[in-house]
């Protein structure tokens, strides 16, 4: 049984919680995960950001030993995966993408059951259930069947069940996909509480605001990591200049801009256009205005700081603008 998690990772445990090299998974002819390298530090929230089908779930399942890699190596908390998957079970907490506790059992029964399955002795189990019920505000739902809970309540229960045995590493697969904004905020507060106690968390998401809260981030597209690093650094080092354009006729402005070879991507936000431009372009905001004046579109432009969405668009290859030009 592992000790109570400590505030700071003890000496000798400074190597990453997860290290993967060349991690690959193929399903038949489809390569779901392609040559991924990962170094996930301890006591941090590490995010996987990517669209559906980008390989987030497959990677998480390989990291917790549920899927066998087709190639590559994984080391989790100093153990080889999937060889040492079984001895690691008590040190990992896993929250599946879909709610997978039992709908026909009550909150209390679900927690008791998970405690038993993780082998917690009766006394410790009782104490831990009391702690997580308090921590995740489940007291009023204690006797309610899990099937009747709301999305946010279910997610609190799932996280409570995943942390019941005090794992050192939590793997959360799109935990907030069916949850309202307030519950999402509360959920992230809980994650930071856990990290403060030394737990390492890997969380996958397709929400930009959630990804921005992570200490570190990997952006996945088509099974590859296309960008990796702290969100602030990714935004600062984005390989593009970001210009915001305010135009009366956004449709005409958009049409004019995508024809410009230096424009990498155009996205509309209300009445404004968010334009990514080749960083080699001198004075990008002037260039944009010239382009628009040539198309006789009245507009104003400002150079702005990149958002995480810009980073995501840049990392996934500016797909759209190039397509639009060709079309």
């Amino acid at each position: 049984m592992n000790a109570v998690p400590q505030a700071i990772a003890p000496a000798g445990e400074t190597d990453p919680a997860i290290r993967a090299r060349g991690l690959t998974r193929r399903f038949g002819h489809v390569t779901a995960v392609d040559q991924i390298d990962l170094d996930i530090p301890r006591a941090r929230i590490y995010g996987f950001l990517g669209p559906n089908g980008s390989g987030k779930s497959t990677t998480i399942r390989m990291l917790c030993g549920l899927l066998q890699p087709s190639a590559g190596t994984v080391n989790v908390l100093g153990h080889e995966m999937p060889r040492d998957a079984e001895p690691l079970r008590t040190r990992l907490g896993y929250m599946t993408q879909k709610f997978s506790l039992w709908d026909d059992l009550t909150v209390s029964e679900n927690l008791q059951f998970m405690g038993q399955v993780f082998g917690l002795p009766a006394q410790r189990r009782r104490a831990r259930v009391a702690v997580v019920v308090e921590e995740f505000d489940l007291a009023s739902l204690f006797k309610q069947r899990a099937g009747t809970l709301s999305g946010g309540q279910r997610q609190r229960l799932a996280l409570a069940a995943a942390t019941l045995h005090e794992p050192e590493l939590l793997l959360l697969d799109e935990p907030t996909s069916a949850v309202d904004p307030q519950s999402r905020r509360d959920f992230w507060e809980s994650l930071f509480d856990l990290v403060a106690r030394g737990v390492t968390i890997l969380v996958s998401t397709h929400y930009m605001d959630e990804a921005e809260r992570c200490h570190e981030l990997a952006i996945l597209a088509s099974g590859r990591i296309v960008a990796q690093g702290p969100p602030q650094q990714l935004m600062a080092e984005i390989p593009a200049a970001v210009v915001e354009v305010e135009a009366a006729d956004t449709v005409a402005a958009r049409r004019a801009l995508v024809m410009d070879a230096s424009v990498l991507s155009v996205a509309q936000l209300g009445t404004r256009l968010h334009v990514l431009i080749d960083p080699a372009t001198p004075e990008p905001e002037t260039r944009v205005l010239q382009r628009l004046r040539a198309a006789s579109v009245a507009a104003q432009s400002t150079l702005v700081r990149a958002s995480l969405e810009d980073v995501f668009v840049a990392a996934t290859g500016f797909g759209r603008a190039a397509d639009q030009r060709q079309g």
Binding site: Y94, T96, G119
Partner: peptide, 13 residues
């Protein structure tokens, strides 16, 4: 089918 098994096999059972 309900996904319970994915959670169960990730436990020490």
């Amino acid at each position: 089918e309900r996904g319970n098994l994915e959670l169960l096999i990730a436990t020490p059972i």
